[in-house]
């Protein structure tokens, strides 16, 4: 990993002096210690800055860049980047920058919401499995294994194919598709989190402080929420970060296949879908949304790597 901790002493090096040295170091609180480790990962820090910039841009960009996203101007169609249209225009003469700023809100929030769904389901299933053991545990873990071996994209396409119309009529074209995509993407990604939480519970439930809480008569629910979950937080945050990136890719893929958001909601994947047939005459139209997806996903992945170094030093992958 770039910029991460250099190899510590190898096996043959003396253990005692290392321990003595560790004792000499000033003590940090866990949060500060994690921040110190995260900061050492240069690419992760740079990525955090870039991602923050992108979030600010899509949040406030449309307020500053006040060109409407659906102003059709055939006179200026398929223009390359100009001062009036810094990212060029599409086949209807609409401003690509305005569309990307607006669509980015959806692309990024789909990623975030899908991650929250995945994390919520994962923590729930993991906690349930970890606390109940026995048959319930076995069934839930079998289910997790099963979901891991489901072909995600085909299933995603199948669900969207079958439920699209019903949700559209219930929540409107935007809301319906948004809810569906978030739930389906999230619902297919809870398994790693569930496993992490369960493993953490199994290893922690016999530890003294949980024993103590149990002796004091804390309810199971309380034990999990107060004592076990905070300990599982590090790995879950790392898994969740990676999930955001995966969800952004999943949404973009759906939209790119023409099966995600409708054309009037220009998510990055959707813009790319519209642009792909004009690759020869207007490559800029495809490059900007593609680069936006790539940059967002890359920086989230790097942040995930940095967080892993900071919060979950045991795991390598």
């Amino acid at each position: 990993m770039p910029g991460s901790t250099p190899a510590s002493l190898s096996a043959e090096a003396p253990a005692v002096p290392a321990a003595a040295a560790a004792a000499k170091k000033p003590r940090f609180s866990p949060g500060l210690e994690a921040w110190r480790r995260f900061r050492r990962h240069k690419l992760a820090v740079a990525s955090a800055v870039i991602l923050l910039g992108m979030i600010l841009a899509v949040a406030f960009g449309p307020l500053v860049w006040r060109v409407p996203i659906n102003e059709i101007d055939f006179a200026a169609k398929l223009e390359g980047p100009t001062l009036a249209h810094p990212f060029g225009t599409d086949d209807l003469g609409q401003d690509v920058l305005a569309r990307l700023l607006y669509g980015g809100r959806i692309s990024l929030s789909v990623g975030l919401c899908a991650m929250l769904v995945a994390a919520f389901v994962g923590v729930l299933v993991g906690a349930l499995a970890g606390m109940s053991r026995g048959t319930v545990d076995a069934i839930l873990m079998w289910l997790a294994d099963l979901f891991l071996s489901l072909p995600q994209l085909p299933l995603l396409l199948l669900v969207i194919y079958l439920f699209r119309d019903a949700l559209k009529s219930a929540f409107g074209p935007e809301g319906g598709v948004f809810i569906m995509i978030v739930i389906v993407i999230g619902g297919l990604r809870w398994m790693p989190v569930a496993r992490l939480v369960r493993a953490q519970i199994l290893s922690l439930r016999e530890k003294e402080f949980v024993e103590a809480a149990r002796a004091l008569g804390a309810s199971k629910m309380r034990q999990v929420v107060r004592h076990i979950l905070p300990n599982a937080l590090g790995p879950v945050i790392v898994a969740g970060t990676i999930d955001v990136a995966a969800a952004i890719i999943a949404e973009s893929t759906l939209s790119f296949l023409g099966l995600g958001f409708p054309p009037d909601i220009p998510t990055w994947g959707r813009v790319l879908f519209d642009a792909k047939d004009y690759l020869d005459i207007a490559p800029h139209w495809a490059m900007f949304p593609g680069a936006a997806i790539f940059l967002a996903v890359l920086s989230i992945n790097f942040i995930g790597d940095g967080l892993r170094d900071a919060l979950d030093p045991r795991r390598v992958l």
């Binding site: 002493l9 040295a21 170091k25």
Partner: peptide
Amino acid sequence: FATEDGLVRA
């Protein structure tokens, strides 16, 4: 050995 904490003269 060069370590994070300095040179260990093993």
